[in-house]
Amino acid sequence: MDWLNTITRTFFDFKAMADVFPQLIGTGLLNTLIISISATVIGLVLGMVVAVMGISPSRWLRIPARIYTDLFRGLPAILTILLIGQGFAKLSQSIFGPSPYPLGIIALSLIASSYIGEIFRAGIMGVDRGQLEACRALGMSYAKAMALVVVPQGIRRVLPALVNQFIAIVKDSSLVYFLGLLVGERELFRVGQDAAVLSGNLSPLVMAGIFYLAITVPLTHLVNYFDNRFRTGRRRPSAPTSGLNEVNELNAATPLTPGSNT
């Protein structure tokens, strides 16, 4: 049972896991959530802008949106993070101070916004064209029709895809460590890695992995749950009713009809 021993010592050194646990919660989890949630919020805002530009009737809005999306979706995340994190370090220093943390968030936001923009765009374009027509026929401007009716419907149908995107951002947030974070800024992966160097085995990283799973797995199932609910609708099953009931009701209620309609 030598190999079993080796595996246990490498991956499941409970002492090392227990040692790193407080740091993972206090520093790692906290920072992972701060980075992921900020990147998601900024990504949602930018993504909506990109999506609305992308479906605009004007090509001067459409083409820049297209290029932006192709650029940030087409590059590996790590490349974008390094280019932005190091390329704008000077500028960032004058605004945010020496920490690369804000730049990491910005880079992740840009990447996220290109994906989220496509999600929003697909959702908005999936809304029945009749909705826009009905709004316009009532005298709403294009902007009002989009803002009040079309976009909200588009968002609702892509909620599951947005949660999936958040899961991807949580995982990608680990890449920010490449920019060299201060001790208090380390996210889950970095905390695990630093602890792994001290313990001499991989158990702290396994522990960090468990934290990631604790975030992502429930969300995945939440998505599936919502997805099913949206697909089947929230309609409560009701006993079949005859269309003739409605005719009766109408005959009784309609005050508009001239003459006899019985």
């Binding site: 029945d128 009749g130 909705q131 027509e133 009905a134 316009r136 026929a137 009532l138 005298g139 709403m140 401007s141 009716v149 909200p152 419907q153 609702r156």
Partner: peptide, 21 residues
């Protein structure tokens, strides 16, 4: 202006086009 014109002309569609939410 089209938006002003359409306030003066109501339209009813084959597929209703009610706002589902």
């Amino acid at each position: 202006k089209p938006d002003i014109l359409r306030r003066r002309i109501g339209m009813v569609f084959q597929h209703f086009n009610l706002f589902p939410d």
